[in-house]
Design a protein around this nucleic acid. Structure first.
Length: 267
DNA sequence: ATGTCCCTGACACAGGGA
């Protein structure tokens, strides 16, 4: 069985490439982030005509997550319990469309689009950290409840856990960029301390291994990327992993997302 | 090649997000 995670940066703009990628990659499950679509304009047919069931959670043009599966799609859950909100007091406050889960082929798959902290000192940064903290507490509870649970926390984590996960850590430090701060890294490592394992890194160690390249500044041809998309597997699921792929080919050419798909193979 | 891309509102391009 193959499980993938991919930030598509608009599922409508990516429809043709996504369909070709489904045919080529032969994945059984894909957790999708940043659909930038509401449920009303989500391309349901794209999945159904290729043999996938699909569930989507989208409220407007921002965020949006989906899970497609050809090995079952059960117990769909939209947002996690007590998912932090973001909004000014005077605005309508709602939980953003950044998290959903489904059980696919016996695996509890989460599609996660972790908030972008935007900038150090920006209110989106404590929102990001709080969002991760609440999710981490759930992750701990899930494993306490069932140590053998097969859980895949898939998504765009918007964190580069190690210095080698960005092309120039000195630049990030000098400019005070996000994604590499101690606080963000601690929030990520808390999942590892809870027992979840980055199952891709052992197959594709760094330095120079990335999953995202900014559209600007010729970042992709210059090989200036960031490793921010991860599949964190529970211990029982990690034991089944037999391979992994960062599909860098999919970042090439016209109409590519700025993120590459990340694929995990299970025995 | 791959020297931003994508969305919306509204009809041209500004504004917002990444």
């Amino acid at each position: 069985m193959k499980i993938a995670t991919w930030n598509v940066n608009s599922i409508r703009a990516r429809a043709d490439r996504l369909e070709q990628w489904l045919l080529r990659s032969d994945v059984d499950v894909v957790a999708i982030q940043e659909t930038k679509a509401s449920d009303e304009n989500f391309p349901w047919d794209l999945f159904e005509k290729n043999g996938y069931e699909v569930a989507h959670f989208g409220l407007n043009q921002w965020n949006g997550v989906a899970i497609a599966s050809r090995v079952g799609l059960d117990d769909v859950e939209r947002t996690f319990v007590d998912q932090p909100h973001f909004g000014k007091i005077e605005d309508e406050i709602h939980a953003e469309a950044r998290a959903m889960a489904a059980t696919c082929g016996g695996v509890r798959v989460w599609s996660l689009y972790v908030p972008n902290g935007r900038a150090i000192g920006d209110p989106h940064m404590p929102y990001k950290l709080q969002w991760l903290d609440v999710l981490k507490n759930h992750a701990i509870a899930w494993l306490q409840e069932d140590p053998e649970a097969q859980i895949a926390l898939c998504g765009d984590w918007n964190i580069a856990p190690r210095d080698e996960d960005v092309w120039d850590i000195d630049l990030f430090r000098r400019e005070g960029y996000t994604h590499v701060t101690d606080e963000e890294r601690a929030a990520f490592h808390a999942f590892e301390e809870a027992g979840f394992i980055d199952v891709v890194r052992p197959y594709h160690p760094g330095p120079g291994t990335y999953t995202y390249w900014d559209y600007t500044q010729l970042r992709f041809p210059k090989k200036q990327g960031m490793r921010i998309d991860f599949v964190l597997a529970s211990p029982a699921l990690a034991n089944r992993v037999s391979g992994a792929l960062i599909d860098r080919e999919e970042r090439k050419g016209k109409g590519a997302s700025d993120h590459a798909p990340v694929i995990v193979e299970l025995d």
